[in-house]
């Protein structure tokens, strides 16, 4: 496959079957390998779409500075696109994220401002909004409320899934900005009204939920509950167990959030199998495991991995 540039190669990722983890020939699991994107995560789609849209809207000029709250992957993707297109990027990132993410951001030329660990990404959003107010010239694409984020998945991820798996019955993805689920979910629902759109949401350690009051909670502006069929909360133990199972049984080396998504997908598969219904369940492999090696998730017992992840933003 030949492309004019790296940015032209975003998307078009493989969908691979999981012959060992699928419960039967009638209930099949399919992994969409988003780690095959240029910076190694699903976020390249949203980053490219948001920057391209901002250019069309006349918000960006050569040398413009972008500001974005991110726990990692969106920042890394934005940094790559921004560098290609001649913009500067400043990321506001919670300090309890893996060191690989900071190294990658800096390699692609981004500057990092850390936000406090307590409160996780909520804090990063709050801090970024404050900084944005003081620097009105900077452009905040704001992945949580930018329609181009969801639209990227409506226009690319969704159609790719349907073309590769016309018999799709379930689509499972992680719930962060909600862009993947909203965009691909809407597209699939329009084409197949009965398709189930299922969210797997990481459940972190207590530090991450350390808000001062409940009114500081956060629901992304992009989120539309009516797109989803169901939503599951997956803790680090199940996420790590499934991440390891995916590598062990199918050879796929994925990040920890993918383990959480696989956990939900396997639950749906077991339910379909029990009811005797056929199912083609597609799920997103958000990224590879490389960026998380230092977290301790890939070594030792499950108990040790779970303890190591306590307090970290692992998805």
């Amino acid at each position: 496959m030949r492309f004019d540039s790296l940015l032209d190669s975003v998307g078009h990722t493989p969908l691979v079957g999981l012959p060992t983890l699928s419960p039967s020939p009638d209930v099949r699991l399919w992994a969409k390998l988003e780690d095959r994107n240029p910076t190694g995560s699903v976020k390249d789609r949203a980053a490219l779409a948001m920057i391209t849209k901002a250019e069309k809207d006349g918000l960006l000029h050569p040398g413009s500075t972008l500001l974005e709250p991110t726990s990692g992957n969106t920042g890394i993707a934005l940094a790559m696109v921004a560098k290609q297109r001649g913009y500067k990027l400043i990321c506001v990132m919670p300090e309890n994220t893996s060191s690989e993410r900071a190294q990658l951001l800096r390699m692609w030329g981004a500057e990092i401002i850390y936000s406090p660990a307590a409160g996780g990404s909520n804090e990063a959003v709050r801090v970024a909004k404050e900084i944005g107010k003081q620097n009105p010239d900077w452009v905040m694409l704001y992945q949580y409320g930018n329609e181009a984020n969801a639209l990227a998945h409506y226009e690319t991820t969704g159609p790719e899934l349907l073309a590769d798996l016309p018999t799709i019955t379930h689509f499972v993805a992680g719930l962060g900005t909600t862009g993947t689920l909203m965009g691909a979910g809407r597209y699939l629902r329009e084409a197949k009204p009965d398709v189930q759109i299922v969210a797997a949401e990481p459940r972190y350690g207590e530090l991450v939920y350390g808000l001062r009051n409940l009114e500081e909670g956060f629901v992304p502006e992009l989120y539309d509950e009516s797109v989803l069929t169901s939503r599951f909360s997956v803790g680090p133990r199940d996420a790590v167990r499934r991440t390891r199972e995916l590598l062990d049984k199918e050879g796929i080396f994925a990040g920890i959030s993918t383990g959480a998504i696989l956990h939900a997908a396997l639950g749906l598969a077991a339910k379909a199998e029990k009811k005797g219904e056929a199912a083609d369940i597609a799920f997103i492999v958000c990224d590879g495991g490389w960026k998380y090696l230092s977290t301790g998730a890939y070594e030792g017992t499950l108990e040790e991995a779970e303890a190591a992840l306590e307090g970290q933003l692992w998805a």
């Binding site: 709250p69 991110t70 726990s71 992957n73 969106t74 409160g119 996780g120 990404s121 909520n122 990063a124 959003v125 992945q143 949580y144 992680g174 719930l175 962060g176 900005t177 862009g179 949401e201 990481p202 459940r203 972190y204 991450v208 939920y209 808000l211 409940l214 500081e216 909670g217 956060f218 629901v219 992304p220 909360s233 998805a315």
Partner: peptide
């Protein structure tokens, strides 16, 4: 039953 505040991801 688990009760949690809504938090951001991404």
């Amino acid at each position: 039953v688990t009760i949690l505040p809504a938090v951001a991801g991404g």
